[in-house]
Amino acid sequence: MRLLATAGRVLSQLRRDPRTVAMMALLPMLLVGLFAWVMPAKQFAQIGPMLIALFPFIVMFIVTSIATLRERTSGTLERLLTTPLRKAELLFGYEIAFGLVAVLQAILVVTFAVYVCGLDIAGSLWVVGAMAVVNALMGTALGLLASAFARTEFQAVQFMPVFVFPQMALGGVFMPRSQMPDVLSAISNWLPLSYSIEAVQRASINVTGWDLNRPLLILVGVTLLALLLGSLTLPRRTP
């Protein structure tokens, strides 16, 4: 009840902000379209699936880190923590609300990539779409956690390039991880986006079983860990 009330509240707030909704729903799609246009078809066929997973992650990371930072700085978080609301209900309330948006986002981006941009996906479109949702949920969880380390919205938006670009470089977007220098390849093993890319790549070429489930489980694990750490950044008592 409190969980759903919180998810509903977050969605109501989103509804009041059409520009953000448009960004969440349309931006991944437009960026995929842009890449399809810029790149030769063969290259887009390789990079397209990664974009399907990465853009929802990035967009959710930014939106959530700012939304929850607002909650922290406006006094509403402090107020919520004086009510019977549990921290898990707050965090999963956010996850449910943004998860629903992520589903919409995934349907749009996959449909657009495949039917408009002509992206050739051998695997199930549903599984590829599900990867986009999993990545969006991880972006939400990490954004929640990141908001604890920002004092202002200005600082919060700075996390995106700091957090995302190195992971993109190391995660195998531009160069397969197996071909990287050993040091970088070893570092990339510890970066969540490496597994985002791995999972969506494999899903798109119809890899199933453990080879798909392993990166997927890692993503779910990172999400849950980020939420757990996030709940620790919501102390009821503050100095």
């Binding site: 509240r9 707030q13 902000d17 107020r79």
Partner: peptide, 28 residues
Amino acid sequence: VTYSSQQASVYTDLSVGENVTYFTRLYG
């Protein structure tokens, strides 16, 4: 125990009714 802080701790992007209803549901 209920508490209202110095800054009006409400969601400024929601209506009065939505704000109060949300907290009503949190208290069940």
